[in-house]
Amino acid sequence: MTDAASWHADGDALRRWVSGTAGSMTSISVEQHVQRCADCRSAVATLVPAAPLEQVWDNVLADVEMPRLGVVHRLLRTVGVGPSDALVISSAVTLRFAWLCGVIGVLGFAVVAQLLAFDHVLGLFLVAAPLLPVAGVAAAYGPSVDPMYELVQVTPYLMVRLVLLRTASILVTSAPLTVAVGLLMPAPTAVAIIWLLPAAGFLAIVLTGSIWYDPLYLAGVVIVGWITAVIVAARFGHQLAVLAPGALAGYAGIAIVAVAVLLSRVIGSTPSWRLR
């Protein structure tokens, strides 16, 4: 075969090839040649209508530039969550990945400890269960953990909505798992669910308090406070004292007050919760 570089398809052959009227011999020749020859390629470019190619390019650029939505995002959209809500929830996932690992780690440890009949497993569960959501929330929003906090604040998207959606997603992902592990604990079955009350109280403190203070700081206070309470209860009586009816009423009370404060701020801010 002759060296392809020494033969150029002439204009007529190219034209016939482009219009589809060239015979098979010419077509084979042109195709094999054009693949390697820049000059003939640009000649072909002048023969092909530009508009359809331009349209395809626009689509290519869009495909290439637009960020690929993660699994969580697509899942949320499929169940009907709006675009900004889905974005706000799924973008927190990267922040929360470390937290999620922590949750699985702690709960996994509790399961293993229980199976191996370690003594203080119940104490561990009592300490960890309400704090896992608190830690998650602290890692989910706020100027200390979210670099885009100020920019998001300045958009029409309500910060309150962002906080509540992220909190809800944290509860949805961690609570069932915690309840399941709770059922394995050497304690009355109720313990597996009752921890939700102190959790609610703590979350309410952090969420409402974040109107004035950094949520990371508040979460820290809550965590230290609760650990202390469990330890103290264990030393001076039984650790389940932290879940005594009196205490539970206390947590519920805190939660109600904090929610009331939050609502009063929110209702003052906007008449409607729906985002356009």
Partner: peptide, 28 residues
């Protein structure tokens, strides 16, 4: 608004970052 100091989140492309704000600015 452009703040004086802006730290960027990880894992975003330039387009993705601006797009994120655009969604929050209600372009849905």
């Amino acid at each position: 608004y452009l703040p004086q100091e802006l730290t960027y989140p990880r894992g975003f492309s330039a387009y993705g970052f601006v797009d994120y704000i655009a969604v929050l600015k209600e372009w849905g």
